[in-house]
Design a protein around this nucleic acid. Structure first.
Length: 413
RNA sequence: CGGGAUGUGGUGUAAUGGUAGCACGCGGCCUUCGGGAGGCCGUAGCCUGGGUUCGAAUCCCAGCAUCCCGACCA
């Protein structure tokens, strides 16, 4: 991608209203734009990150046997009334009327819809287990959207729902997804810990959330300095300072909830009359569990964790591009060489952003640091004279001169 | 929903109740070209509506918007 073609509007200064690193940097670097409180556009580079995160999530969920589908955001009260949530969800659920004066709700989650789909489309325990997920925009009329992209009224979410013939099968899959989540967050470069969640309005069964220590987060977790003890600080007994497992010091950290998983067991089967035929011809309740990952919040969390005073430092796994070619000067020789390298890297199957714009060197370097692509390759009169390019990692200070062949080799691994 | 703060060109900011200014950006021309380059010319603004006043960006009221703290939070 030539930078002159990419819509990457970079701002010199952070928007005055944004105080959180994720919002300041994503808006400054041209990854996102705010329309109103808690509602953001994702620009091309940001969408590249989103797609990469989705790719990781998709990959790991497919390994568990889950399949992707797409469900509607517009929903009618009928199914929501079966669980009573049409009345209990507002004001957080957006509800309005269509032109025929029929009430409509904007989906903030999909348990009802997905359960309805499944109960109408399977008849036998042989059709179970079934694992369905989607990536979708969710709508929640939050009392206070805040912290940049961390808590929005409209946001991207991956929601997975699993259906089982038995409680044991559900438990087993619940743990399997939990491990998939561990791998997902790890692949995104994050250290997530699974903790028990404080009770929500949707289930009384213990649910779990995945928390990442990050400055812009809205939660607080207590971590043991020594062992793997981790707990949501809300659930920590007051005044506790020593780890219950090893009596080492407990430290509280601001954290971001990037995922959560819930077991509903047969609640939905009962509420929504969802049964299948069992092996003895009996009626078996369909057991349900659900699993969410806030994709846009995950992106924001990654920025909170991976940035310095100069800008973002994307982990390679989610970076919108792997390499940033920075062409200095617009002399014909340099231009030709930069284009040659651009072509060579693309040929090698690498994601490349080529800064072909006519700007001063200093400005290009500042912007490259802000945008945060993992590898920077400088092409200038100097490098051309030596028959090499200058290669530098965003996360390191030292630069290295190498040939194009060496560069490709380095990036390929 | 309670509390606090703030609304001035595209962005960031100034202006005792008395001519809206600066920087960056953007457009043009020229010189530059390895860490936000320089010169010249140009471009663009007081959140909305009331009120006070000879006169309001400035004071008052209402509304709208954004942010922060809290409450809330699949």
């Amino acid at each position: 991608m030539r930078q002159s073609h990419l819509f990457l509007p970079i701002r010199r200064e952070p928007p005055k209203d944004e105080t959180f690193a994720n919002a300041q940097l994503l808006l400054r670097a041209g990854f996102a734009d705010k329309l109103m409180a808690g509602v953001f556009s994702i620009f091309p580079a940001g969408l590249g990150v989103v797609r990469n995160i989705e790719g990781i999530v998709r990959d790991e969920l497919q390994k568990t046997g889950a399949v992707e589908l797409a469900m509607p955001s517009l929903q009618q009260p009928k199914i929501w009334e079966e669980t009573g949530r049409w009345k209990t969800l507002p004001p957080e659920m957006f509800q309005f009327k269509d032109r025929a004066d029929h009430p409509i709700g904007l989906a903030m989650t999909h348990e009802e819809v997905v359960f309805d789909i499944v109960r109408r489309n399977i008849q036998s325990f042989r059709d179970l287990p079934l694992k369905l997920y989607q990536f979708q925009t969710k709508f929640r009329d939050e009392p206070r959207p805040k912290s940049g992209l961390m808590r929005g009224r409209e946001f991207l979410m991956k929601d997975l729902y699993s259906f089982h013939a038995t409680r044991e099968d559900l438990e087993e899959y619940y743990e399997e997804v939990s491990q998939a989540y561990d791998r997902i967050f790890k692949r995104c470069g994050l250290k997530a810990v699974r903790v028990e969640a404080p009770g929500g309005i949707f289930t009384k069964n213990p649910s779990h959330e995945f928390q990442v220590v990050a400055e812009g987060g809205e939660d607080e977790i207590a971590l043991c300095k020594n062992c793997d003890f981790a707990k949501n600080a809300e659930l920590l007994e007051k005044g506790i300072k020593k780890c219950p497992q090893c009596s080492a010091t407990i430290v509280r950290h601001i954290s971001s909830e990037v995922g959560n998983i819930f077991r509903f067991y047969d609640k939905y089967a009962k509420d929504m009359n969802g049964y299948v035929m069992g092996p003895q011809g009996e009626n078996l309740p369909i057991f349900l569990a659900s699993y969410g990952i806030g994709i846009s919040r995950l992106m924001a969390t990654i920025v909170e964790v991976f940035h310095d005073e100069r800008g973002i430092m994307w982990p390679e796994s989610v970076a919108p591009f792997l390499v940033h070619i920075v062409q200095l000067g617009d002399g014909e020789v340099v231009k030709k060489e930069a284009q040659k390298i651009y072509a060579a890297l693309q040929e090698a199957g690498l994601e490349v952003l080529y800064d072909d714009r006519e700007k001063s060197a200093g400005e290009k370097f500042m912007e490259a640091d802000l945008v945060g692509i993992p590898w920077r390759v400088v092409v200038s009169a100097k490098t051309v004279a030596q028959g090499k390019v200058e290669v530098k990692k965003r996360s390191e200070d030292k630069a290295e001169l190498m040939t194009i062949e060496e560069l490709v080799k380095r990036l390929k691994k």
